[in-house]
Amino acid sequence: MPTIPQNAVLIPIDMQRAFDAAPWPARWNDRLDANGLALLSAWRAAGRPIIHVRHDSIVPGSTLGPGTAGNAHRPGFEPQTGEPLVTKSVNAAFIGTDLELRLRRLGADTIVLFGLSTDMCVSTSVRVGANLGYRVILVEDACDCFDLPDGTGGTIPAAEVHRVHVSTLRHEFAEVLRTADLV
């Protein structure tokens, strides 16, 4: 069982409603919400710090734009009292935000990430976090991603996109654990 410092920060990334409808493609992980909620519950019960990340798109017409229904957190993923929210407009949770400052003020050296989507905002945030010197833990079964066009008329299934990205992150940027390892 991994040792997780008491001040390790749980960072749910982009757990937003927009990803459940068009124009977003099909996803694969039907346990995303259950696993993410289990992590939040365990972290809160242990009194550990949580910093939520939400994507506030600046692209006109985006389903993730501030004030749109899709921008809202998925049910149960709303920050609770004392849990800060960091908003971003790019993939990396560290770019153009005060996330690193918040982590430094907490004295955190370990961050635990999950959310949407594995290959985009989660992966980018994992990579930047590792490059900044944090011990990064990716909770692979509390992440999800989308089917992607392969550029030749075919589709790469979301589960395969996820598997490849988790493998890359495990190789150089993060420890990869499952929800059961942490709750």
Rank of each mutant, 00 (worst) to 15 (best):
M1P: 12
P2N: 05
P5R: 12
N7C: 14
A8Q: 08
L10F: 03
I11H: 04
I13W: 15
D14Y: 15
M15F: 11
M15E: 05
Q16M: 09
Q16A: 11
A21M: 08
A22K: 13
P23K: 11
A26L: 10
D30R: 15
R31C: 02
D33S: 13
G36A: 05
L37Y: 07
L37S: 09
L40N: 03
A42K: 10
W43Y: 11
R44I: 06
A46K: 15
G47L: 05
R48W: 13
R48Q: 04
I51F: 02
D56K: 12
S57P: 03
G61L: 11
S62L: 09
L64N: 13
L64I: 04
G65V: 10
P66A: 09
T68M: 09
A69I: 02
G70T: 09
N71Q: 14
R74I: 15
R74W: 01
F77I: 13
P79R: 12
V86D: 05
V86P: 03
V86G: 05
V90Y: 07
N91Q: 15
A92H: 09
A92N: 12
A93R: 09
G96F: 10
G96W: 12
G96N: 07
D98I: 02
D98E: 11
E100A: 14
L103R: 01
A108C: 08
D109Q: 14
D109R: 15
T110W: 07
T110F: 11
V112Y: 08
L113F: 11
L113H: 04
G115F: 15
L116D: 01
D119E: 04
D119C: 07
S123H: 10
S123E: 08
R127A: 12
R127W: 00
R127D: 00
V128P: 02
G129Y: 03
A130D: 00
L132K: 12
L132S: 01
R135H: 13
V136E: 01
I137Q: 03
I137R: 08
L138R: 07
V139H: 05
A142T: 02
C143W: 06
C143Q: 01
D144V: 10
L148W: 03
I156R: 07
I156V: 15
P157F: 10
P157N: 11
A158S: 10
T168R: 00
L169Q: 05
R170N: 01
F173P: 00
F173D: 00
A174V: 10
E175K: 01
V176D: 00
V176W: 02
L177T: 07
R178P: 00
T179N: 04
A180P: 00
D181T: 11
L182S: 03
